[in-house]
Design a protein around this nucleic acid. Structure first.
Lengths: 244, 244
DNA sequence: CTTAAATGTCTATTGATATAGACAACTATA
DNA sequence: TATAGTTGTCTATATCAATAGACATTTAAG
């Protein structure tokens, strides 16, 4: 980890850039041997900034609960995180990361009845204006928010999916109760952008943070579209893995 | 687009937060009717900031070539684009986006002989220290840089792949000449981060921009790893598509 | 030709960001 | 119990980020 450069006058404060880099290094396991972040003076030298700037960065990470400074000893690593999300024919939230965390949970934020917009209709292969059920859900891993998703389901087949989901916390189980024993991921599109206001709130991010966005279509085993969803992931907490 | 909030004292300047939001709105097609961004005074009111702060944001977008301000008229939208990259068993740079642009090109930036680091060795399933060939390439679409990639190949099989690639501009053709008639993408990992200094230069980005990073492994038809590569894409120019 | 509406430029002021240096307080260890 | 190494706190200074206001310049439309 030699000769790291930071960019000045970009509208992103140095302490924030450095905090992001250190968080990434921690997640990458760079400091696993010692379990500590390098001393402030060392980091200041590496990043080519003043020690006080490093202290601002570490203070931000301490605020996130990722490190804890102990006077006289050093700055200890409290927590690491970057979950690996497999994307495949059988992509499901909790199954994919279940072995990486102690607890996964899915929370229903909101639901509403809608009619299909042009975009959603195109994906679900239905007519614009067809009745739909919309679900806003929040995915959590060990009580930390990881993703927020908006999903649309055809109302004729899944009119009361919200209630079932609310009680079971699982799309897979809700589908099963509604006569869809299994479903497959047909297509996933991935983009990245800066976090918007809702992301900041729901995913507990700070401005300038990055979100990875997936747009995905699931069909039942007869190739009939059953769910179209747009999910937004905190980019510094996840990694996508596509196995072919 | 009413009542937008920006967050203060987070290490991310207001003008950058606002620039990111406007860029997103443009890509989302919010201003397609007029082809212009709303007037500075309107935006200042919407975001709850001073007009000069809006001007800083628009100046940044103008620097990126996304908008162009015309005195007396308004601020015109110059460009919105996002290429779709399919990721599948048969992922190749030029084939995937060939139908979306007039011309794709791949340029060899640098090459060197190396020995395998622990990380690369793990992917290629070889021993640390095994001789490798490293290729740095730049992918362009219609003369705009889209991705920069670093690839490693086992030197014993592909010792002179650099020369062949330089003359053909194609990994696929180089493989073919070296006795690998076909190859498949085994695994792709996707993450996102802020652009570093090299990204800014090679991909012609402005500071604070986002890059999508893929780490991918290709094997020949006998399942022997032939190429491990790390690619960095300008996030505002691409979208990944995974078909299952 | 006027005028309204938009961007361009300038000055001034305040708060956040970053650097610089000095020294205090604490921890582990020789 | 010294001592080296580390984090904590303080003062001072310079630059960037943001606000505020005034006015110039350009464009399009009445």
């Amino acid at each position: 980890m030699a000769g790291q450069k930071v960019q000045r006058q970009t509208g992103v404060a140095l302490w924030r850039q450095i905090a992001d880099r250190i968080r990434t290094s921690i997640n990458h396991g760079d400091f696993d041997e010692s379990g500590m972040v390098p001393p402030e003076t060392t980091l200041a030298l590496q990043f080519g900034v003043n020690r006080h700037t490093i202290r601002s960065a570490l203070a931000a990470l301490a605020q996130e609960g990722i490190v804890r400074a102990v006077q006289g000893r050093g700055t200890l690593i409290e927590r690491k995180e970057r979950l690996s999300f497999p994307i495949s024919k059988r992509t499901r939230f909790s199954q994919g990361i279940g072995d990486q965390v102690r607890e996964t949970r899915s929370v229903l934020l909101a639901t509403s009845d809608e009619t299909a917009s042009a975009e959603v209709a195109r994906y679900l292969k239905i007519k614009t204006g067809t009745p739909l059920v919309r679900l806003e859900t929040l995915g959590q891993a060990d009580h930390r928010p990881v993703s927020r998703a908006t999903s649309w389901f055809p109302a004729d087949r899944f009119g009361n999916i919200a209630e079932i989901y609310r009680s079971t916390g699982s799309i897979t189980k809700a589908f099963r109760e509604l006569g869809v024993p299994d479903y497959v991921r047909v297509v996933t599109e991935i983009t990245a952008t800066h976090a918007d206001e809702s992301d900041l709130a729901d995913l507990q991010l700070s401005p300038g943070a990055i979100v990875l966005i997936t747009q995905a279509l699931n069909t039942d085993l007869d190739n009939v579209p059953v769910q179209y969803s747009i999910s937004r992931f905190a980019a510094d907490r996840v990694r996508f893995t596509i196995e072919n």
